[in-house]
């Protein structure tokens, strides 16, 4: 504090413990700012606030998300693990049909776990608990790594993947977990909503003073009258619902929430039955840092 003030800068902290006249302790937010006459500090203005209640609420929010995640995940873990036991023959040999049915139960369980993870991420974002910690990252390597998660479905659907990664791009400061989630969500959507033998193009390039990432598909597209809802929580377009493809309706909401928090931009172009391209851009300085609990559950889309 002394060093910062001696340099003529403002200082603030929410880590101070102070004592009231009756001896009881409380947590204080303090901000001290110098008032200058040209270059000379003539006096300081200090503001203090009792933030004990704010900190208690904050702690309660974190504990709520932790407990909720535990309570929701436990029965799902039971379903998942018991079906794995059955499938591996621990309870004896099963008929082909029995195995199929248990497989469906296992898949349902994995889908529910993905939904719970997504909902927990939504609650963290809405409670203001999502932290962003940027560190220099090779975005092409991250995109390649995220693509690996979808190799079985890509092979199954005979999808063509094109990578248009600008050569020589320097590392960009991004939160690794959140950037991975962004890539996974956009690629997952492209793979899910593109019919067999379609094409997906992933682009990473520098444009003016921004890094622009694009994921383009030749899939079902977004109906014109529903484009304004595409980033809404739990929204799934009518044409997708008819195709009976799994999805939580939360992926794009989460991606947009992360991009907005990180001070990037997200937009898309789409035509029904032709395809969709999602674009995300960040300044060259990367994601904006935000302090928070840095919890972010990975949504598993692979069964």
């Amino acid at each position: 504090m002394r060093k910062t003030l001696a340099e003529g800068k403002s200082f603030s902290t929410d880590e101070l413990m102070n004592k009231r006249k009756n001896g009881s302790e409380y947590q204080e937010y303090t901000a001290i700012s110098p008032v200058k006459d040209n270059e000379n500090v003539i006096f300081y203005i200090g503001i203090s606030q009792d933030i004990t209640r704010h900190k208690e609420i904050d702690k309660a929010k974190t504990e709520f998300v932790s407990l909720a995640s535990h309570q929701l995940r436990t029965p799902l873990a039971i379903i998942k693990w018991y079906s794995e036991l059955l499938l591996s023959g621990d309870a004896g040999k099963m008929t082909v049909k029995q195995k199929d049915y248990i497989n469906e139960m296992h898949r349902g369980g994995v889908r529910m776990i993905g939904l719970v993870n997504a909902l927990l991420n939504v609650s963290r974002i809405e409670l203001g608990k999502l932290g962003i910690t940027p560190e220099p990252a090779n975005l092409s390597a991250m995109a390649n790594s995220a693509l690996l998660d979808f190799v079985p479905q890509i092979k199954d659907k005979k999808l063509k993947i094109k990578k248009l990664f600008e050569k020589g791009l320097s590392k960009v400061p991004v939160d690794l977990k959140l950037m991975r989630a962004i890539f996974q969500n956009l690629i997952s959507n492209a793979v899910k909503y593109t019919p067999e033998k379609g094409e997906i193009k992933i682009g990473i390039k520098k444009e003016n003073s921004e890094i622009v990432i694009s994921v383009a598909d030749t899939g079902y597209g977004i109906p014109k009258n529903q484009k304004d809802k595409i980033f809404s929580k739990l929204f799934r377009a009518d044409n997708i619902m008819k195709k009976d493809v799994d999805g939580t309706g939360l992926g794009l909401y989460l991606v947009k929430a992360i991009v907005d928090e990180a001070r990037g931009r997200i937009w898309f172009e789409s035509e029904e039955n032709k395809g969709t391209t999602f674009y995300i851009s960040f300044p060259l300085s990367g994601m904006h840092a935000v302090s928070g609990s840095k919890d972010f559950s990975e949504e598993k889309n692979v069964v």
Partner: peptide
């Protein structure tokens, strides 16, 4: 089944060998 960073950090600082979120792993 809790995946809170503060808990994972606490366990890692205490020196546990590994931390698993049950529902994310096969038994």
């Amino acid at each position: 089944n809790t995946a809170s960073m503060d808990k994972i950090k606490a366990y890692k600082e205490l020196g546990v060998t590994r931390y698993y979120v049950k529902s994310d792993h096969r038994i």
